[in-house]
Design a protein around this nucleic acid. Structure first.
Lengths: 247, 247
DNA sequence: CGGATGGTTGAAGGGACTCAAAAAAGGTGG
DNA sequence: CCACCTTTTTTGAGTCCCTTCAACCATCCG
């Protein structure tokens, strides 16, 4: 457990700048947040349902994800978080966790005390608004996922997920030219979209067959963005990206 | 379009007090927010996808709901809002709407300028935190709905919805002794839970048959709370109610 | 090279859907 | 207060998307 140097928190700055504009002063204040760095293995819980964390977790490298567990081992994945994300920022004002947060891959994580965030938002109301906005985008993504799970076909859901993931990565400079690394298994995709892994597998083959994507291991290439986003009825408005980048 | 008197905004105070504690000063500041009152007919859009509202809508009486539209007339309902709710509070920091807000029943609504909210949160940081918290609870409910739609049976989903609705109403003093008014049609329930109205109808009959509920018109009576909440695997943690009320 | 994890395939079944029509309930106005 | 129209609920029949179960193959890694 080491404490962070100011360059460590750059992914956070980049993330917030993807959805809002920051002043130089605000950027500096963010970078000098106190944070404890920790390395974690893949598939480890970071915070659990019913916990009362005193810190927020920032992803510096690797991926994390949030999930709920139901009876008979059923799992619903709520979100995937690449570097720069604050996957449990909501714990700043919701004191009890209502879901789990875990690593997907090996991760480098920064833990920032709630106290430091509260101090930060007091001194910089603009940053307070930016963080609030971040949690609102989070909620907007939940709404979109709900809509997908409730009303889209399996094919549409997966197409939509791929479009969203690519655009999110692109907006923080972690992907270009319709290629990215998505380190999820087919079971993960199923649990995120309310599908069985078997069906995910079949739909992926169909997508490859139609020449929409390439997917080997965790490397996704979106071969035909137009067709894929059409299949998923993908409209990026809900991501509320600053530049309104579309693809 | 009349402007509000201070007693008009009491439902808002009650709602915020269901999830947080307010000081006398804060309560007073809330009640003296400037607001324009408007009456609306049932099933009218209040704010539409892609709009850029300058006001937040507060429900004074009646119900509103949020929804998204997809191709071929498919609809996903995202939330239902009884009196006291601020169903588009997110528009304070997300400037473009990514879904629609509409009346479910005839409504009395108050429209409060964003400007007034910004001023309020500047003068009373505690109220800023309370409103932020409100949007976080909103997001927590989305997560729970996602989980239901993705991983629960039709029976479990409907059971869960009824438990949630009753508890939300109870927390603001709009329901007691396991009875409440839910003015949704079976089509609405289906569009909220990712089901067809036909199937909703059959599940409701099954619920009545098992003696879990009574439902005539819009009057719901939860006859067997224990069995219903068990069927829906209902755990109220995600509602983040202040008293931690369970039933 | 063997053990583990993740991906692929086949077969069979079921939960929920669609379509279509009838019955019931809810206004509304004469 | 009843006739009429609309909306909502209910019912039946047939279908399909996706699931479950089970096995097999591929890939990765120490």
């Amino acid at each position: 457990m080491v404490s962070a140097s100011s360059s460590d928190l750059i992914p956070l700055v980049r993330k917030l700048e993807s959805i809002t504009q920051l002043t130089g002063e605000e950027r500096q204040a963010l970078e000098s947040l106190p944070a404890a760095i920790r390395l974690m293995q893949p598939r480890q819980d970071i915070v659990r349902d019913k916990d009362r964390p005193e810190h927020c977790c920032l992803v510096l490298s690797g991926w994390t994800y949030r999930y709920k567990l139901l009876s008979e081992g059923k799992r619903q994945i709520l979100s995937f978080h690449p570097p720069g994300d604050l996957p449990d920022l909501q714990s700043l004002h919701l004191h009890v966790m209502d879901h789990n947060l875990a690593t997907l891959t090996a991760c480098r994580l920064a833990f920032i005390p709630h106290e430091a965030f509260r101090d930060l938002t007091n001194r910089f109301p603009g940053l307070g608004a930016a963080l609030w906005r971040d949690t609102l985008v989070d909620a907007a993504i939940f709404r979109e996922w709900m809509t997908g799970i409730g009303r889209r076909t399996a094919f549409g859901r997966i197409a939509h997920l791929f479009c969203e993931m690519y655009l999110k990565l692109h907006s923080v400079g972690l992907a270009t030219s319709h290629r990215c690394e998505l380190p999820f298994t087919q079971v993960d995709i199923g649990d995120a979209l309310g599908l069985s892994n078997v069906h995910v597998n079949r739909v992926l083959q169909e997508m490859r067959g139609k020449g929409l994507i390439t997917l080997q291991g965790s490397r996704l290439v979106i071969v035909d963005w137009g067709a894929l986003s059409e299949a998923g009825e993908f409209d990026p408005t809900y991501l509320h990206l600053r530049a309104g980048e579309t693809a």
